[in-house]
Amino acid sequence: MVMAKAARNTVGILGNVISFGLYLSPCPTFYKIIENKSVGEFKVDPYLATVLNCTFWLIYGLPFVHPDRILVLTINPIALMIELIYISIFFYYAPNQERKKVVYWLCGEVVFVAIVSLVFLLVFHDHKRRIIAFGIICDVFNIIMYSSPLTIMKKVICTKSVEYMPFYLSLANFLNGCVWTAYALIKLDIFILISNGLGVLSGAVQLILYGCYFKSTLRDEKVVDVKASQLQLSVSDGPATV
């Protein structure tokens, strides 16, 4: 029992480290935004989605919902802060129409989280039912985030080129899913297991596609670098996407 707990803590800490790396992966994209003083065709949608995801996983890890998920709780506040920094940079350099979109979405997310949390906490008075309620909604948003690369995978197959799929991001997503799946299996947490198991599958498919189409990709390093950085997403990860 003690060894299982120690193993779980070790895996959870490793998961936090990998998740932290994942959330820092879009830094080159935002560096380009700052350098160009323009958001160009860059989209903020994945980061708005990640804010919602991180917020629900943060609530899931709080003691009044789940009393034994400290490693879920530690990574998500950090992830949330990183995502808000990204969104702030986008907001500063975005045109007025995009700024309005950011404000509307963030306000909507705050209201949505507040209403859902209040209803769940008032209706469900014990840990078991709160875990199920918040776990389901966390899984829904996590699965949506893990499925977001599907459009990129379709593009890879159609173009027979991996220039739109950053290898290291795909690898990090796969490793992140593996670590958090292991964490969920050591002491079964079905909600962490479901979404991250799908994350492993998604990451594996991306890596297989990369291997299949790497040789057929035309090399134009400048174009590849710009396009790949624009497609970097903040996924889930860890309970931050757990």
Rank of each mutant, 00 (worst) to 15 (best):
L193I: 05
V140F: 15
R219M: 15
S117V: 02
R219F: 14
G197Q: 03
I157H: 08
T159S: 14
L218S: 14
V179S: 01
G135L: 02
S148F: 05
G135Q: 01
L106M: 05
L198P: 01
C138E: 00
M145E: 11
F141Q: 04
I192R: 07
Y210A: 13
V103I: 15
Y213W: 10
K187C: 03
L150K: 02
E98D: 06
K100G: 06
M165T: 13
Q97N: 07
S117A: 08
F214K: 08
S148E: 06
L209A: 09
I136G: 02
T181V: 10
P166R: 00
Y210I: 12
L121I: 09
I143M: 08
I157R: 10
P95F: 13
Q206L: 09
I143Q: 03
I157A: 00
V103C: 11
L150P: 04
K155E: 14
A184I: 09
F112W: 05
S117D: 06
I136D: 08
A133F: 07
S170D: 04
I186Q: 02
K154F: 11
Q97L: 03
P149G: 09
T159A: 02
S161Q: 13
V179I: 08
Y164N: 14
N173W: 03
A133H: 08
F191R: 01
V179C: 00
M145I: 04
S195Y: 01
K128G: 15
Y168P: 10
Y183W: 14
I194K: 08
L198D: 00
R99E: 04
D189T: 09
R219Q: 15
S202Y: 10
M153I: 11
V156E: 00
N176M: 13
K100R: 11
P149I: 00
H125E: 04
Y168R: 10
K187Y: 12
A182K: 03
A172Y: 03
A204V: 13
S147N: 00
M153C: 13
N176F: 03
D126V: 09
V119M: 04
K101L: 05
G199Q: 07
I186R: 06
I144F: 08
I144Q: 02
R129H: 13
M165S: 13
M153Q: 10
G197A: 10
R130G: 12
L198Q: 02
I186F: 04
Y164H: 14
F124A: 12
V205Q: 11
L185W: 12
L171C: 13
E221Y: 14
Y213T: 11
V140T: 12
F141Y: 05
I136M: 08
V103P: 09
Y168F: 15
I137V: 15
K160R: 15
A204Y: 14
S195L: 03
Y104G: 01
Y146A: 02
L201W: 07
V123L: 14
T181I: 07
C212K: 15
Y146T: 04
K187H: 10
S216H: 05
V113M: 00
